[in-house]
Amino acid sequence: MNWLMVIAGAVVGAPLRYLTDRAVQTRHDTVFPWGTFGVNIGACAGLGFLTGLASAAAVPQALQHLVGPGLCATLSTYSTFSFETVRLAETGAKYFAAANAAVSVVAGLGTAYLATALAQAAVG
């Protein structure tokens, strides 16, 4: 049953990642990959919040599988982040490549931490 929940989450997460990435990136006239950055931060927030809820209260395992490895794992995209960072460096946008790597990691970890704390505080 858990694998069905992962698949159900992935069915939503993968197209949501692609559509959100395209929608965000078309609104920015820059080489910085704002679309990938946005979906990765959103996934960090979702997974952090789920982690906070699961550590502070009983969260059904099926819901954990749906949101965690299903939705959030397919919403985030480490491979695209890596590819875009290398592409930026190869095309001479080394500042953007370094900024993408540093800001994505720091913002992702910070977002996950804050979302975990928010969920724990909300549950009490």
Rank of each mutant, 00 (worst) to 15 (best):
P69S: 09
A45G: 08
A45E: 09
C72R: 05
Y78L: 15
L75T: 10
A57L: 05
P60R: 05
V59Q: 05
L53C: 05
V59W: 07
P60E: 11
A43P: 08
L66I: 07
S76E: 07
G70P: 05
G46H: 04
A73C: 14
G68N: 12
L75W: 14
L66Y: 10
S55D: 15
S79T: 08
L66G: 07
A56R: 03
V59T: 14
H65G: 04
A57Q: 11
A43E: 12
T80E: 07
T74S: 15
A54Q: 10
L63W: 14
A45K: 04
P60Q: 06
S55I: 02
Y78T: 13
H65Y: 15
H65P: 00
A73Q: 13
G70L: 01
T74Q: 13
S55G: 06
L71D: 12
A62R: 00
P60W: 06
A62Q: 03
L47G: 03
G52F: 06
A56N: 01
C72W: 14
F49C: 04
G48D: 09
A58P: 03
T74M: 03
P69L: 09
T80N: 12
A62C: 00
S79K: 05
Q61G: 08
G52Q: 04
Q64N: 10
G46E: 11
V67G: 12
A58Q: 04
L53F: 08
S76H: 01
C72H: 08
V59Y: 14
T80L: 07
L47P: 00
V67A: 15
L47D: 01
A58L: 10
L66V: 00
G70S: 00
Y78E: 14
F49V: 01
L63P: 05
H65A: 14
T51D: 06
F49R: 08
T51A: 15
L66E: 13
G48Q: 09
V67Y: 13
Q64F: 09
C72D: 14
T80S: 09
Q61Y: 08
P60K: 12
A57V: 10
L63D: 06
C72F: 14
A62M: 00
L53R: 06
L66T: 05
V67S: 12
S76M: 11
A43G: 15
A62L: 00
A45H: 05
Y78W: 15
A43C: 09
L53W: 08
S76Y: 05
A45N: 05
L66W: 15
S76C: 14
G48Y: 10
A45C: 11
Q61F: 06
Q64P: 03
L50N: 09
H65R: 11
A57W: 07
C44Y: 08
T80D: 04
L71N: 13
T51P: 02
G52H: 03
L47I: 15
G70I: 01
A43R: 09
Q61W: 04
T77S: 13
S79N: 13
C72G: 10
T77C: 04
L66R: 11
